[in-house]
Amino acid sequence: MKTNTFFHGLAAAAMLFSAAAAHAQSGDLKKFPKGATPEEIGQRIASRFVASPHPNFGRPVPPRVITYPETCTWYGALTFAKERNDKALLQQLAARFEPLLGARDTLIPIPDHVDYTVFGSVPLELYQQTKDPRYLAIGKRMADKQWGPPEGKRVTEASHRFYNKGYSWQTRLWIDDMFMITAVQSQATRATGARSYIDKAANEMVFYLDSLQKPNGLFYHSPDVPYFWGRGNGWMAAGMSELLRSVPKDNPNYPRIMAAYKTMMASLLKYQAEDGMWRQLIDDPQSWPETSCTGMFTFAMITGVKNGWLDAKTYGPAARKAWLKLITYINAENDITDVCEGTNAKNNHQYYLDRKRLTGDMHGQAPLLWCATALLRK
């Protein structure tokens, strides 16, 4: 009797182990355990955003203008509301914008830098969902300024040089730019139907690919900063994903961008930690697991699988594992932890390792919403 019980126990344990292994290897991006679904996580993070004042990079005073981490989170909340057909959330997000249409219009950034111009993606998304022409006017003006002649106090000699070569005068060759530029330009094409915006952004993307992508598929922060910084690469991964979702396939740069995207995704697979995370410095195993880059890479992989760019059997499990681990970093206040603080380009390895780990910073909140949206897209 004892022998039978022993073997039954072994059999049960083996079944449990087999089930756990199968679960870990699952590439299912549709069904998730209760508490881990994109609907639940997205609602938690979106509600947290709606209740939050305008952030100012951790400073105790309100910002002079809307900052780009807020822009990215706002955009993510709007796309989540769209996929959920959540009219109540859309109304809350539009209400957040309403003061900017009146007395608080000074909070709208002057579009003379990539970090400011990306704000245009928010009114352009609001326009697509509400058809209110006031949003279109603001968003289109910002997208147009990015490609117009150099203008404003931030203009440099390099601004004119890039503009004369057919690139945005806001070019600076930091990998961050390839979300800031492609997001607003992709949105301008989606909102207006004019492909000139995204065609220019695709040409700009190739310039950055040629300048910053290395043979292993990853990107230096800038030409003179030879480190594979997590979130910087995350901006690039997310930017290529946003661009590829809408750039016409007959665009001559489409094959080049798709090849660069796939090369990057293949490299990221090799550097993903066993638990699903990616690190502050991607190729440094001693570097700490970082949530904003993990969220951005997860978004890029989900988007690739959903659109058929990536093999679902290979990338589905990686994306699922990353999502399930990433959401364990969300605390009781619906703030994600271990977010790298805002980071300039610096040619110093230790500088990246020593960056502060923040909680609730919108650099980390935004990718959660992007992932939730991507998981809900058909």
Rank of each mutant, 00 (worst) to 15 (best):
K249T: 15
T298R: 01
A194R: 14
K249V: 06
L124M: 08
E157M: 09
T37K: 01
K2Q: 03
Y254T: 00
S222V: 08
T192W: 01
F80V: 04
T117V: 15
V225T: 13
P317S: 05
S211Q: 10
A14K: 10
S121M: 08
I282D: 03
P63R: 14
S47G: 09
N233G: 08
V118P: 10
L243H: 01
L212C: 10
W288P: 05
C72W: 15
R64Q: 06
L209W: 01
P367K: 04
R256Y: 10
N251Y: 09
S26Q: 08
I110T: 14
A266P: 03
D361M: 04
G139E: 08
K140L: 05
A183V: 15
Q350R: 06
E40K: 07
Q365E: 06
Q128A: 14
L209K: 08
F207Q: 10
F179P: 07
L101M: 12
L101P: 02
P123G: 03
L368Q: 00
K262I: 06
N347C: 12
G304L: 04
Q43T: 03
A260P: 00
R320I: 06
A19D: 14
T156W: 07
L268G: 05
K346E: 00
E39M: 05
G166W: 15
P109V: 14
G58A: 07
E98P: 00
A201M: 02
P69C: 02
A77K: 07
D354V: 11
I108L: 04
Y227E: 03
D338K: 11
W147R: 06
P252M: 09
Q280I: 10
D275A: 00
R48D: 11
A374P: 03
Y163S: 07
N233D: 12
Y227M: 07
R195M: 08
L353G: 08
E157Q: 09
I181F: 06
R104L: 14
L218D: 04
A13P: 11
L324H: 03
A194Q: 13
D210C: 15
P223G: 09
H221A: 07
M15G: 12
K165T: 11
A319P: 01
A24F: 10
G232N: 04
L173H: 09
A36C: 10
S292E: 05
L353D: 11
M264F: 00
A191F: 03
W235K: 13
W235G: 09
P248S: 06
L269I: 05
Q128R: 14
F57E: 13
P123M: 11
G234P: 08
K214R: 07
A11F: 07
A12Y: 08
P149A: 12
N251E: 04
P215S: 00
T298I: 04
D105C: 10
Q43G: 14
H54W: 13
F7W: 15
C293S: 14
S222Y: 03
Y254G: 02
Y351K: 01
S287E: 10
V65D: 10
N331R: 05
R64Y: 12
V305R: 00
L375V: 03
S47M: 02
R279N: 12
N4G: 02
